[in-house]
Design a protein around this nucleic acid. Structure first.
Lengths: 143, 143
DNA sequence: GGTTAAAGTGATAATCATTTTCAATAGGGG
DNA sequence: CCCCTATTGAAAATGATTATCACTTTAACC
């Protein structure tokens, strides 16, 4: 839900004593109207198209706020670029990444999640978050 | 086995028509005499201590060769620094990372691995490699 | 052992993504 | 409307990594 994310972000802004600005609204709209994975640069270009006076520093700063507020999550695929994805409440997903065409598919698996928690516990670890990525060749590329 | 890694690397060098140099030997010795996770900078400092004329460009270049030759693997924890770890034959391990003290613990779990392969198959995906990282607070830091 | 082409090296400059700085501007509570 | 503080854009700074280039070294061949 887009509107609920907007609300969540507004609440975060208020709680922190920050301010609502035209720029933040624009960046938020662009982010929410995009699909799952967005690099900072991609989003910056989208924002520019709407309002060419917004600088990239603002986009960087705003994305950090999104992550802090919980409506977005930083992801790193090891290619030197930070990406952001939407956080759906209660959801957590992992990634299948095709090393040939770069396509990213998301999946979820309860059992894996549970096993992860078990393993962590064996080491006296309390898990806050995790990252699971499977790299390989997708079905299209194998044809 | 250190000597087997040395051998593997020499074979790689020969196969590729590259050359054995004092510098590469030094970097390799330093890498092999260290424990699992090393940032490029840490290794550079170690190399420097042995031979202060070796430049960091050489360390970077040599680590890339290690990764290409299969004796090392690049790892990224999302903190903007590339690390390298030793590759043991047939082995694969995942990481528990303490977000407070930065300690890294390794673990292996057969069941998780198998489930990963199953999930991938459902998506018509052939997994080549994967990455699983659990971030949280370690037992020491929770005391 | 000497010759030589190709690979390797170190220093430095360049690059790339991201962060910081700073002077100017704009929210929003009072 | 005022004032304080957060915010902004542009530009400079940063930090990790990579490319460049003149010089050196390796190793195949005689």
């Amino acid at each position: 839900m887009k509107s609920s994310k907007k609300k969540l972000f507004r609440e975060f802004i208020a709680r922190k004593g920050l301010k609502t600005t035209r720029q933040r609204d624009t960046v938020l709209d662009c982010f929410l109207s995009s699909d799952h994975h967005m690099s900072t640069e991609e989003l910056y270009l989208k924002v520019r198209a709407k309002n060419s006076t917004i600088g990239f520093a603002t986009v960087y700063r705003t994305l950090k706020l999104f992550a802090e507020s919980g409506i977005a999550r930083e992801i790193h695929f090891g290619d030197g670029q930070t990406r952001y994805e939407h956080v759906e409440e209660g959801e957590h997903h992992d990634h299948l990444i095709c090393t040939r065409c770069g396509a990213v598919t998301e999946f979820e698996n309860e059992t894996i999640e549970r096993l992860q928690a078990e393993v962590a516990e064996q080491f006296g670890f309390v898990v806050e978050k995790h990252r699971l990525e499977l790299y390989g060749i997708c079905s299209k590329c194998r044809k």
